[in-house]
């Protein structure tokens, strides 16, 4: 009860959501942990057409984190709607569907197809996947960000969350454009671009050469970006990046995060969800505080 959170007008049983691309479309997580243990799930990004994903290897461990280059592998919107989405309908958690497109038209097409599915609570626009073969991520350019959010906002009745890239010089500027275009919330950070080299084989480790860095290594970057945005803008934020226990979740909450998203930390630790929620409850109890008391305390 202590963790119940209102976000975009919806009740979340706790401020914990599953980041996009971590648990696919949730079935396995539901079997292992239970979707009713989290406030919401952000589904793996879906595109208009199926995408096989990037060449192998797609993952590599690095100091305090990992690189991935999955490459938005997904079955395409039609199969997603017919085969994957219905499973989520039966579960009482908030459903945020992540979509990506090479153009605004593709995003609009996806948003229209999802608009009439009542049990979808919000859309997340993935404007920041570092692993697809385009010259830049949409959210690396404030004008492109505005254009994409604006185009989707014009056609959807769903709440719209823009997922931003940390691979920028001024994330607040990009965030401001997303908000001006009508984004109801922001999700950040996506992974930081990175490369790992195998000096023994003298080769790149990932099949795609570059990948996205996640894990505790990027947490200070994420905390700063959430802090910078919350100081400047009045917009709800789903914080991502290196949450591996309640303490890392608290870092984000104290700088104003509305929700916190669990990501690659779930791969090694299947108990992470319960550990974070129990840890947060204990912290609040011991400090005689509510979630609202601590949220944004350091702003």
């Amino acid at each position: 009860m202590a963790l119940s959170t209102l976000f975009l007008g919806k009740r979340f049983r706790n401020p914990i959501v599953l980041a996009s691309g971590i648990v696919g479309y949730g079935k396995k997580f539901d079997e292992e942990v239970g979707l009713d243990k989290v406030g919401g799930i952000i589904t793996k990004t879906v595109t208009a057409l199926p995408r096989p994903g990037n060449p192998l290897p797609r993952v590599a461990e690095v100091d305090s984190g990992m690189l991935n280059s999955i490459g938005l592998a997904n079955p395409g919107i039609d199969k997603f709607i017919s085969d994957q989405l219905p499973y989520l309908q039966e579960h009482k958690t908030n459903i945020i569907v992540s979509i990506a497109g090479g153009t605004s038209e593709e995003l609009v097409h996806l948003a229209l197809l999802l608009d009439n599915i009542e049990y979808i609570d919000a859309l997340e626009l993935n404007l920041s996947c570092p692993n697809v073969a385009i010259k830049m991520q949409t959210s690396q350019d404030p004008r492109e960000t505005f254009r994409a959010v604006d185009a989707v906002k014009a056609v959807t009745r769903k709440q719209l969350i823009a997922k931003l890239s940390p691979n920028v010089s001024d994330v607040v500027e990009v965030a401001r454009k997303a908000v001006e275009a009508g984004a109801d919330a922001l999700s950040l950070i996506n992974t930081l671009g990175g490369i790992k080299v195998d000096p023994v084989l003298r080769k790149f480790v990932l099949g795609n050469v570059t990948g996205g860095l996640s894990g505790p290594a990027i947490r200070p970057v994420g905390v700063k970006m959430v802090y910078d945005i919350k100081k400047e803008l009045d917009i709800p934020v789903i914080a991502h990046g290196g949450i591996v226990d309640q303490w890392s979740a608290l870092e984000y909450l104290l700088v104003g995060a509305d929700l916190i998203a669990l990501g690659s930390g779930l791969f090694k630790n299947p108990d992470l969800t319960e550990e974070v929620s129990a840890g947060l409850e204990k912290y609040l109890h011991e400090n005689g505080a509510t979630l609202a008391d601590i949220r944004g305390e350091l702003l």
Binding site: I22, K28, G53, L56, P57, N68, A73, F267
Partner: peptide
């Protein structure tokens, strides 16, 4: 043989 991050069908690294 594949590299994998989770080993249980979530990370999509081992197609």
């Amino acid at each position: 043989e594949r590299r994998m991050a989770c080993g249980r069908g979530m990370c999509m690294a081992c197609p």
